[in-house]
Design a binder for these strands. Structure first.
Lengths: 186, 186
DNA sequence: CTGTTATTTGAGCATAGACTCTAATTTGAG
DNA sequence: CTCAAATTAGAGTCTATGCTCAAATAACAG
């Protein structure tokens, strides 16, 4: 892939794949469906991707990146910043949020590649949350900080999980409540 | 199906289906895999079930029933009882917990039957949690009670979601933390 | 323009999956 | 024991899916 046309086609295919994973799931996303949606024929698909799995992995990477735009930036985010960023991700990028949740369930089950990625991402995320908590509560033990961060991150994913099922579910209310509760007793 | 042999075969098939959904997911669960695992041939399967979907739905029902053994019993459970029961379910019945989480993601997406069941179950569960909160905090407004119940139930599902990915994840610690936090600021 | 390389086309292959059918076997009520 | 009904066996059908390939077309560096 070196010409402009190829790059555009690649993009159309990835968009189609993303939309399909979000609506049909990983297994329900077929080559035919991707090609129809992208307005492309199988030959073109296989000119740009080695396999269906490769296209799916690209979308998986997009989703993970979208959750945590800058995972190494152990910066000055407050816990509230992190939660608000997550709320925005879930509400503004519905398709990617769906992909993100499906990752954990369908993807991780039988694909070690996806499982590894997801777990590493989760750990990084917990570390980031823990750092924020630690900044706001310097006296809290490291163990306690870590535990609170992990509880919060998994709980937030639960909220997203429910949102994926029920589009009317108000993510922001429940996510903010989790944030408040998480540090209420400190 | 009226003879004893048929009932036993039916049972073997459902066990196999349950195990397979837990390990491979709904789409990964094929007739051949079910039959191999159950030690049965396709002809027997279709003598007892109309379709693959019917077998899956039976297991789905099992999973939902196992989460909330007695959903109409708006009894005297405390919130802690409910959380502990859920912890036990997740840790003691790993396969069904996996099925339960997959329900929400893979199942609900394209199967209105499963989606409806899951949503109804969720509502019932939230109501049960809300009733327990209300009993323990009679002065709390109904709206607030409901919201706290819903946050807690979805957060607990998030903990289960993570446990499904990482068997080493300590459900009880995080679930109990959610319980404590949920009412810490009251 | 030209020639090389990238891209697209679309028919086609191989495999796997859901499900069917008929003949044989087993069950158990009377 | 008997016989109708239930169950099992297992080969076979049909469709969908992932992927390939050779030929035709488009892109673009020089």
């Amino acid at each position: 892939m070196r010409y402009k046309a190829g790059l555009e086609t690649r993009d159309k295919i990835l968009q189609a794949t993303r939309k399909l994973i979000a609506s049909e799931g990983m297994d329900g996303t077929t080559i035919k469906a991707i090609c129809d949606q992208a307005g492309v024929l199988p030959g073109s698909f296989y000119n740009l991707f080695d396999s269906k799995e490769q296209a799916i992995l690209s979308v998986v990477r997009q989703a993970i990146d979208a959750v945590d735009p800058d995972p190494d930036h152990l910066g000055t985010d407050t816990l509230s910043d992190l939660v608000e960023a997550y709320i925005e991700f879930v509400t503004e990028q519905g398709d990617l949020a769906r992909v993100y949740i499906r990752l954990a369930v369908s993807g991780s089950a039988n694909n070690p590649e996806i499982w590894g990625r997801t777990m590493r991402h989760h750990q990084g995320r917990v570390a980031r949350f823990a750092a924020a908590i630690s900044r706001e509560h310097p006296l809290m033990s490291e163990l306690e900080t870590e535990r609170r961060a992990e509880t919060l991150v998994t709980a937030l994913n639960g909220v997203t999980l429910h949102r994926v099922m029920d589009p009317g579910f108000d993510v922001s209310v429940h996510a903010r409540a989790l944030l408040t509760d998480a540090l209420a007793g400190v």
